[in-house]
Design a protein around this nucleic acid. Structure first.
Lengths: 225, 225
DNA sequence: AGACAGGTTTGCTCTGGATCAAGTTTCTTT
DNA sequence: AAAGAAACTTGATCCAGAGCAAACCTGTCT
């Protein structure tokens, strides 16, 4: 990812591999002291803000290769909680060491800035999703996002398992469980995909993408000045 | 902000102050080559994603002291557009120079990581706002956010002018203009504030805060697994 | 001063998706 | 294998907020 082999070795030296974690385990909880950036090796982790009360806002699902904990740098306390969805292996990178190392390796520093920036961009995309998209568009977008991320990691982009519940999907997308369930049924009836419990097969990715664009049924829009 | 005086001088040397910009000017547009991080000195800037079509998602309103452009680091192209809402002065900081300088000044690097992380945390808060809060809570949250930010800059937390239109507020909060307008009226009727066009006076900040918490009318909730 | 153009407010209606209420299927535990 | 508990689906109803329409206000241009 843009680092010289030698630099990679130095980075590698501070990374610690961990024993596998199991469904339901907490990687960390909101408010915990921040020490490590985590990288998912295999499995899935969900991050969420557990509101004061018992509500809960799912902030993301993290697949292999993705980072967790970047939002904690500012305060030194974890800003959200992270929970394991299926047997998962993570690497932990001590942030203080990473920071020190990045002082001496400009290419690593650059990578860090890029990763943090990417996270911001991604969150902004989610804001648009929640602010502008309807239920159908949200689910289509979610499935396409998973599809693309699986593909990038070398997995099938059209045949995969969901490690999260319908409830968690709904929570993440700002929808009720029932709406998610109904949409899966509808998408299946429309021949867009086959869904059987957690197993998803995307049959018509093109048409799913069309939902995200053409669905702008009209070009009358929120032209805020 | 945690930098030694000498370091501040070095940082200061690469910052360029600019002539004032006027309402409607673009600071940059989505897709423009990314060169500068901007700091608002006075005035207000709105950032937004101008969808393919003509829609538009407002991503943020930036007050004095706040940064713009962090989401562009990853790709080197601006991820969103930025438009001036009222006569505004900004500083521009060449990112390449900032990055180089931060290689030699660990405290500056640390600050950068914190700022980027803060942005992520803030966006996550917005996700919760859009995913979980109802219209009333969203507007209350918005007003309190402005209030706090004004106060931090030494302005009145309870008496200020909105530099953005109702339309822009609604867009930002995922609400229709009409809903925003009605809520202002309702809040005024309830004695929470006085609103006269763009002039806002918060009369009962405490009660506004209660809207954000107590309003959880029930502890039955989305306990995603 | 008159008049057009935005922005804002307000009333009325409509609807997407939430909520409520059963079922049904799948997983877990014993 | 039985029983309980989750998770999921499906149908029926409800409602917060969107959308539409019509005034109204404020500022700007001629």
């Amino acid at each position: 990812m843009g680092l010289a082999p030698d630099d990679v070795d130095q980075l590698d030296a501070i990374v610690k591999r961990n024993r596998p974690l199991h469904r339901g385990d907490h990687l960390f909880r909101q408010g915990d002291t921040f020490q490590y950036i985590y990288v998912v090796k295999t499995g899935t982790v969900k991050t969420f803000d557990p509101g004061e009360d018992g509500s809960e806002q799912v902030l993301g699902f993290h697949l292999p290769g993705e980072l967790i904990g970047l939002d904690a740098i500012e305060t030194g306390k974890h800003h959200c909680s992270a929970k394991i969805l299926e047997t998962t292996a993570v690497c932990e990178i001590p942030f203080s060491k990473l920071e020190a190392l990045s002082s001496t390796l400009p290419s690593l520093q650059h990578q860090m800035y890029r990763l943090l920036s990417r996270e911001i961009g991604h969150d902004e995309d989610m804001l648009t999703l929640l602010g502008k998209r309807n239920a159908e568009e949200r689910l289509a977008s979610f499935l396409l996002s998973l599809s693309g991320r699986f593909q990038r990691r070398g997995f099938s982009p059209s045949d995969f398992y969901l490690s999260m519940s319908r409830h968690e999907i709904g929570n993440y997308l700002g929808l009720a469980v029932e709406t998610v369930s109904r949409l899966f049924t509808r998408f299946q009836d429309d021949g867009l995909l086959i869904v059987e419990r957690k197993h998803i097969q995307l049959l018509d990715i093109e048409r799913l993408k069309q939902i995200l664009t053409s669905d702008q049924d009209g070009i009358r829009e929120q032209q805020a000045t």
